[in-house]
Write a protein that binds this DNA or RNA. Sequence first.
DNA 1: CTAACGTTTGTCCATCCGGTCAAAAAATCG
DNA 2: CGATTTTTTGACCGGATGGACAAACGTTAG
Lengths: 211, 211
Amino acid sequence: MTTMAKARPRTRIQTQKRGIILEAALDVFSTHGFRGATIDQIAEAASMSKPNLLYYFRRKEDIHTALIQRLLDTWLQPLRELDEIGDPLTELRGYIRRKLEMARDYPRESRLFANEILQGAPRIMELLETDLKSLVDEKAAVIRAWMKAGRIAKTDPYHLIFSIWATTQHYADFDVQVRAVLGPDRGGEGRFEDAARFLEQLYVEGLRPKG
Amino acid sequence: MTTMAKARPRTRIQTQKRGIILEAALDVFSTHGFRGATIDQIAEAASMSKPNLLYYFRRKEDIHTALIQRLLDTWLQPLRELDEIGDPLTELRGYIRRKLEMARDYPRESRLFANEILQGAPRIMELLETDLKSLVDEKAAVIRAWMKAGRIAKTDPYHLIFSIWATTQHYADFDVQVRAVLGPDRGGEGRFEDAARFLEQLYVEGLRPKG
DNA sequence: CTAACGTTTGTCCATCCGGTCAAAAAATCG
DNA sequence: CGATTTTTTGACCGGATGGACAAACGTTAG
């Protein structure tokens, strides 16, 4: 798990402070991007001095890397849970809902990821081509099997997955735009419930197998 | 159109050089964001010295502003063309195709916009709340009328528009990720045709009016 | 208590970056 | 051509920024 040279055991204070730093850095990186974020900002947000922060992470990039590695794991969890055994439409609906919940509950993580991809993914290209690709290949095969069995409409499983990513993450990444158009969160159950209902309908009807 | 103080007529060289600068700046801003882009990079990409560039645009932000204003107009054009008179499903299919074509042909513009929104849209918030909002309100009303008339399935027109934005722009903004998953553009008609077919099917089936 | 180790801070530095300025070089115009 | 205006450039500046360092401070175990 740790990457230190001589495998020093991590101190209580170290784990704690590193956690605080990562939390603060998530705030800063997700709203300003890697280049736009400054160590001073992160230190300020973490309530410590810059040299002190640099004692826990030697370089700015180390913080970013730690953040992204922690992120990718949880980020792909909803897709991992897509179960070949279950009912296809129920599984996909569940996947959409879980992704939407992540966009609602972890918007900063979504933006951090979006920022990284937008700028060409210089720091995570390798992870995309290995971990991400193999997971998507696996799940696309599952979806394709469902299609072959006539349980959902035949279409391109990869683009189906892309569209689910796009539509759900949109509510985190483009939140400002959504709010500008819809105005401040209207009463009732809230914007996310509206989005969930819309997406559910779109995908369930759009993927219903044809007579 | 121009914003110069004493309305000096623009020189031939000025129009030309400003064009070159904007083109170069689009490259740089779209891949690094506003903060991440440097004037030197833009000058380098435009093959001129920094002071020379600053002779045409006094501040870095001026370049960005010019770029975004030019962008927003063409960016919303596809939505403007959504015609109340036409057949609803045909109109929406056409809208999706036009948006997808823009993502294919103008990915830098898409990323420039995405970058700006991601970072909280500090420079275009006002435009979003006026121009964008009023156009979306107008077209959402058109779509709602179609729904009321039973010509397409009843659902939330705003989230429908958002989902079209999300799915189409995804192919420009997350291009790196798409390529990492699908591998280098596979033979045949290309990735965009696959995406177009998928989205067309999803939306046409998903919005087909019920019984 | 004290030695060893972990933590925190003030100071400092080199580089980058946005932007200025004056002077040289083109271009334009009469 | 010569005068005036536009364009281009090299040198420079002040502030921000990533990071180094050593000294001071705290903690802990023998």
